[in-house]
Simulated scan of single mutants.
Amino acid sequence: MQLVVARIGRAHGIKGEVTVEVRTDEPELRLGPGAVLLTDPSATGPLTIETGRVHSGRLLLRFEGVRDRNAAEALRNTLLIAEIDPDERPEDDDEYYDHQLIDLDVVLADGTEIGRISEISHLPSQDLFIVERPDGSELMIPFVEEIVTDIDLDEQRAVIDPPPGLIDDRAEIASARDAEGAEDSDAAAAGSGDAKAAEGDRA
């Protein structure tokens, strides 16, 4: 399985280094010296990482064969892709690879369907689930323990407990559910009345 682990940014300095937008929770494993990465577009790779260092909060990489600023700048916006075993799991039981989370159903604790995870956004402060709703709209759900209460890979679902306002139509979902319940009750009552009327006719 292939996993996008970074995107190359602008060149840094004159010796072939590039800035990198990290897209993996394990940069020390995926983006360490000696790692061989596929690329998109594929014409620029594969690339082998020669050195890596952090400068002003940004990861800088140098690749074998890339020795000057022009060569580094030519790699700008290239995606770096790692080949991984699809059954591989992070060492921490509470961590997941993006490909394990994509397409999970997102539901409330009572089973109410919210949508499907279509993308994982890795921000400096936290990760976000980009959730596609049945109507095609999107929600952003912070991937934090207080909100995402359970990840069940066997059932292919993520259970969430969103705070007020995170899901704008949560109240509408509840209202719709209550309305359905009321309609069922009215229908049952009407059915009961019809049955009594029929009994009266027979009498």
Score class of each variant (00 low, 15 high):
Ile160Gly: 04
Ala188Met: 07
Ala158Thr: 02
Val148Ala: 15
Arg30His: 15
Leu61Asp: 06
Leu3Thr: 13
Asp161Gly: 06
Ala189Met: 10
Pro162Asp: 07
Asp98Pro: 00
Glu88Leu: 12
Asp135Leu: 07
Ala72Gln: 02
Val148Pro: 09
His55Trp: 03
Pro46Asp: 05
Ala74Asp: 08
Arg23Leu: 15
Asp161Arg: 15
Ile117Gly: 03
Leu75Ile: 05
Gly57Phe: 01
Gly52Asn: 05
Arg170Lys: 14
Val36Lys: 08
Arg116Cys: 09
Arg67Tyr: 02
Ile14Glu: 13
Ala82Trp: 05
Glu145Arg: 15
Gly32Asp: 06
Ala182Pro: 00
Ile160Lys: 10
Leu104Tyr: 02
Asp127Gly: 04
Asp152Asn: 15
Thr51Ser: 11
Met1Arg: 12
Ile81Phe: 06
Leu139Ile: 11
Thr24Trp: 06
Glu138Tyr: 13
Phe129Lys: 00
Val66Met: 02
Arg202Val: 15
Glu95Tyr: 10
Arg67Trp: 00
Arg157Cys: 06
Phe143Asn: 09
Glu64Gly: 07
Pro134Asp: 09
Asp110Pro: 03
Ala158Asp: 00
Asp68Tyr: 01
Asn77Trp: 03
Leu59Val: 04
Glu95Phe: 10
Ala43Lys: 14
Asp25Asn: 13
Glu64Tyr: 11
Ile141Lys: 03
Leu108Lys: 08
Gly57Val: 07
Ser125Gln: 12
Val22Ile: 13
Arg67Asn: 14
Ile141Pro: 04
Arg69Asn: 08
Leu104Ala: 01
Phe143Glu: 01
Phe129Asn: 01
Met140Pro: 00
Gly32Gln: 14
Pro124Trp: 06
Val36Ile: 15
Glu199Gly: 04
Leu59His: 07
Ile120Leu: 14
Ala109Arg: 15
Ala187Gln: 12
Glu26Trp: 13
Asp110Thr: 08
Leu61Met: 10
Leu75Pro: 01
Ala190Arg: 15
Arg23Tyr: 11
Ser192Val: 03
Asn77Ile: 00
Gly193Pro: 00
Val106Cys: 07
Ile49Tyr: 03
Leu128Cys: 03
Thr78Val: 14
Val131Gly: 05
Ser137Leu: 08
Ile8Asp: 08
Leu101Ala: 03
Ala198Val: 08
Leu31Ser: 05
Arg202Ile: 15
Asn77Phe: 12
Pro164Ser: 13
Leu31Phe: 08
Ala71His: 01
Met140Gly: 05
Ala198Asp: 13
Val66Cys: 05
Glu17Ile: 00
Arg116Pro: 04
Ala71Asn: 00
Val66Ala: 01
Ala82His: 11
Ala203Tyr: 09
Ile173Asp: 02
Glu26Thr: 14
Glu183Met: 14
Arg170Ala: 12
Ile167Val: 15
